[in-house]
């Protein structure tokens, strides 16, 4: 039975603001799940708290809407216990890089097979537009009484140093590219991070759809010159594999930094890094628990006729004193 895109949609009323960038991201997630023909019952979407964290309610898979900033620890527990499940984590930049920054870093070190999709809009929307960790220093979005005096964070560079092995950037209004990026992220064997530039039409009056689209900068032909551009595969190769030499790795990391720090009139999008040389957490677990995949925690038999199956005397014999 083939799944169509409607199979990934719920009938829950969506209460995002009209014109919100979140809609594009939601569509892209649903389309990539359909593209991959993933059984909705074998997928769980975890989220934090905030506008974008309502996403699971609109996707017809298992949905777990957790706590502010804690999406990754919840997703980690779920994926570890049931590694057969496809696990997506979604949330905003305030959720993931403000209150959840510690988890963002700690989870990177695991390289567990989770795809983390960040809805990055520079503001805390649901609480009416305060500056979030990605809003640039000195900027004053419309609900700020004064310009932002806290320096911004660079999510891509933080992801690299934390150990994410797939790092990409998308744009909420380029659903076709997003769909491909999310699919690549899910197919990547380790932890994927997709930073999605997502205009908040209500509170971020600086990084707007028009601004990303370059409506304010017309070329000689009178056409808008978009700020967001796609990385050219002929000029930029994000892949680090077993064949990549140390020297090439250094060059690739340098190129990554150059692209990750581009902002303003030139904002790159696409896959910035895919590192296939790092072992995944599952692989590391299997080294000491060889039957982990076959017999994961969620499926383990723990009783027989309601009696514990543990042979406790084997362990007690180790501790025996008389």
């Amino acid at each position: 039975m083939a799944f169509n895109v409607a199979d990934y949609k719920t009938s829950v009323h969506n209460n995002w603001c009209p014109g919100c960038g979140d809609f594009g991201i939601l569509n892209a997630i649903q389309m990539s799940l359909m593209d991959m023909q993933l059984d909705p019952e074998r997928v769980t979407v975890f989220s934090g708290v905030g506008c974008s964290s309502k996403t699971p309610h609109y996707i017809n898979t298992y949905g777990v809407h957790t706590l502010h900033g804690r999406v990754l620890p919840f997703a980690t527990g779920g994926k570890l216990a049931n590694p057969e499940m496809t696990v997506l984590a979604v949330g905003g930049d305030g959720d993931g890089l403000g209150i959840g920054a510690g988890h963002f870093v700690a989870t990177g070190r695991l390289n567990l097979d989770i795809t983390y999709i960040m809805f990055n809009n520079g503001v805390y929307g649901l609480t009416k537009g305060q500056a979030s960790p990605t809003l640039h220093l000195g900027q004053q979005t419309k609900s700020l009484p004064n310009p932002n005096i806290i320096h911004e964070i660079n999510p891509l560079i933080l992801a690299l140093s934390s150990g994410y092995t797939f790092i990409a950037r998308g744009y909420a209004y380029d659903v076709a590219q997003l769909k491909a990026l999310i699919r690549q992220g899910i197919e990547h064997p380790g932890l994927s991070f997709i930073d999605i530039l997502q205009p908040c039409p209500t509170y971020n009056n600086i990084n707007t759809r028009d601004w990303f689209g370059g409506a304010d900068r017309k070329g000689e032909d009178g056409k808008a010159m978009p700020r967001v551009y796609k990385l050219d595969p002929n000029l930029y190769d994000p892949l680090i594999s077993a064949e990549t030499t140390d020297e090439e790795i250094h060059q690739k990391i340098a190129a990554f930094f150059a692209k990750a720090t581009e902002w303003g009139d030139q904002i790159p999008s696409g896959v910035l890094l895919q590192n296939l040389t790092q072992s995944t957490y599952e692989e590391r677990v299997i080294e000491s628990l060889p039957k982990y995949k076959k017999n994961p925690p969620a499926k383990r038999q723990i009783e027989s006729d309601n009696k514990p199956v543990l042979k406790i005397n084997t362990i007690l014999d180790e501790l025996r004193v008389a």
Binding site: F46, P73, F74, A75, T76, G77, G78, A81
Partner: peptide, 16 residues
């Protein structure tokens, strides 16, 4: 924080 949240995530899959 992560310890309790990961334990809950695991519990949701049916693992004790």
């Amino acid at each position: 924080i992560a310890a309790i949240c990961s334990a809950i995530g695991a519990a949701l899959t049916g693992a004790r």
